[in-house]
Write a protein that binds this DNA or RNA. Structure first.
Length: 106
DNA sequence: ACCTTGACCACAA
DNA sequence: CTTGTGGCCAAGG
């Protein structure tokens, strides 16, 4: 589906994402909740379509997993800005962000 | 109005 | 770890 780029929801999502500090993250659900919504999926759709110019890697899933299909590119950023990752294997086995330390709330 | 499609979420088995 | 279920919400057919 295609979201309306001028939609206030889309505008608000991008505004919140751009306010996330380096080394910190929010979940899709967190972003929705900040807007008083539970539309985590719509946040995902928003990032997929309009997130290219935003720090999209700072928005992850509730389990600490980076966005599907962008794991490798996200890892580059996490290492660069020292985002806390879950101890253990980070390579092919998959990695996770340590939400307990990296989660950011506005 | 109903159905389907998602960078989703929570919880159970 | 994997499925399955039910919930969420915008957009399009």
């Amino acid at each position: 589906m295609r979201l309306n780029p001028a939609s206030p929801f889309v505008e608000a999502v991008l505004e919140i994402v751009e306010a996330i500090p380096p080394g910190r993250v929010m979940t899709y659900g967190d972003v929705a909740a900040t807007l008083g919504s539970r539309a985590a999926r719509v946040v995902g759709q928003t990032m997929a379509q309009f997130g290219a110019d935003a720090p999209w890697w700072r928005v992850i899933r509730a389990g600490g997993h980076p966005p599907i299909g962008h794991e490798a590119r996200a890892l580059v950023h996490y290492r660069a800005e020292k985002t806390p990752l879950k101890p253990g294997a980070e390579p092919e086995t998959g990695y996770r962000v340590d939400l307990s330390r990296a989660r950011w709330r506005p």
